[in-house]
């Protein structure tokens, strides 16, 4: 692996995202931006929890994938356990996000 292409370990948190948005939208109160972001995230969670998709053009889509029932094992005792089927959230990045993320990596390489 090319070390230069390694993503940095920096992580942006929800709070930092809210701070950055609030700086850019300084006609809005910080509290309002915070509430708006939290509402957006709650709305997205709620949407998935009722089995609906999320489609954000240029960003990507979220949907549910079904995991069929299976026989699992208790790793301690080795006993078989029947596990019910379940849904898991899935994200598919959109074209613009894919390209920008990959071009960002390519730009890092050229800069070095």
């Amino acid at each position: 692996m090319n070390a230069i292409m390694m993503p940095s370990n920096r992580t942006v948190t929800k709070t930092e995202l809210i701070e950055s948005l609030a700086r850019k939208q300084n006609h809005l109160a910080y509290k309002d931006v915070e509430l708006a972001v939290k509402s957006l995230i709650e709305k997205m969670s709620l949407t998935l929890s009722v089995g609906e998709r999320i489609e954000i053009r240029g960003f990507g889509s979220f949907s549910l994938h079904f995991r069929p029932p299976r026989i699992g094992r208790n790793p301690k005792t080795g006993d078989s356990v029947a596990l019910a089927g379940k849904h898991v959230p899935h994200f598919k990045p959109g074209k613009e996000l894919r390209e920008r993320v990959n071009n960002g990596a390519a730009a890092d390489m050229e800069a070095n």
Binding site: N9, R10, V12, T13, R100
Partner: peptide, 11 residues
């Protein structure tokens, strides 16, 4: 993400 940063949205 384009700048190489991970994003963590708690919850």
């Amino acid at each position: 993400l384009a700048a190489g940063e991970d994003v963590k949205l708690s919850g």
